[in-house]
């Protein structure tokens, strides 16, 4: 049950996409998002879809895995689609009872749904091909300039990677505590909302206590291993831009610029 949730969604591999510097991929995702928002009509959307397919092919991510990534937001996508379809005024195409579908509505709905799907699958490609720890490293480096305005970038990145490290441990622990309370007859399934929330207490209290204990012990263990903040830290695998990163970034910039131009001319 709880164990089936896969967080981070990283799929180890050794494709060119996996080898790209995480900073490059982060920037590419930003470029891609700009591109998607600049796309206006069939041709520019076509270019964006094609780009995604090519990237997915390079990353060796299957169509099914991509679609599975859309599952959690399926309701939002459907809702957006329907909303745009029914509530956009324009030339009527079909109407029954109080519902009217216009040509413009239909088109808008299709584009909106496409846009959301592209944004999400595009971002998923990043997490599919980048391990959380590299992603955190990349973010820390990209945001390094913010240290000058006293944003604790290193500390935030460290927190994020520790959180990622402990998610599976805490999920496992939640499972255990739930089983233990069920063995004492706890009932999580029946009752009204208030009763159910109350029924969570026997899980949440031990979970919090344990999380604090873990935090305490981890802090001591980190100090014992000479942790003293980000100052003077080196890296086992430091991030270095390679030729492929410059190439990928150049391609990304060209593509986004191209789509913007296409959009400007109304394609």
């Amino acid at each position: 049950m709880l164990k089936d949730i896969t967080l981070g969604q990283y799929f180890p591999g050794n494709t060119p996409a996996h080898r790209l510097d995480p900073r490059t991929k982060l920037l590419l995702v930003v470029l891609y998002i700009v591109g998607v928002f600049s796309a206006k009509f069939v041709i520019s959307y076509g270019v964006m879809i094609l780009t995604l397919i090519v990237c997915a092919r390079i990353s060796k991510v299957g169509a099914r895995a991509m679609l599975r990534g859309l599952k959690p937001v399926l309701i939002i996508i459907i809702f957006t689609g329907l909303l745009n379809m029914f509530f956009t005024p324009g030339d009527p195409l079909l109407s029954f009872w109080i519902f009217h579908i216009s040509r413009q509505g239909l088109r808008l709905a299709v584009f909106m749904v496409l846009r959301i799907m592209l944004l999400i699958t595009g971002t998923f490609l990043l997490t599919y091909t980048t391990s959380p720890i590299r992603l955190t490293d990349g973010l820390e480096q990209l945001l390094n300039w913010m240290k000058r305005i006293h944003v604790p970038v290193h500390e935030l990145a460290m927190m994020m990677s520790i959180a990622l490290r402990f998610i599976p441990t805490l999920i496992e622990e939640t499972d255990k505590i739930m089983s233990a309370q069920k063995a004492r007859g706890a009932d999580f399934e029946s009752g009204n909302l208030f009763q159910r929330a109350r029924a969570m207490l026997p899980i949440l209290v031990p979970l919090f206590i344990s999380a604090f204990r873990r935090a305490d012990e981890l802090a001591v263990a980190m100090e014992c291993r000479c942790y003293h903040g980000g100052e003077g830290r080196t890296k086992l695998s430091p991030l270095r831009y390679a030729g492929r990163d410059y190439f990928a970034l150049a391609a990304g910039v060209c593509l986004t610029a191209g789509v913007m131009v296409l959009g400007y001319f109304g394609f």
Binding site: P132, L218, A221, M222, G232, R233, T234
Partner: peptide
């Protein structure tokens, strides 16, 4: 569980030398 910092084994082993620069 409470003394492993990273979610990749070798990154975790590297933690102390990284701290030491």
């Amino acid at each position: 569980d409470n003394q492993i910092v990273s979610n990749v084994v070798e990154e975790d082993v590297a933690f102390a030398p990284e701290n030491l620069g």
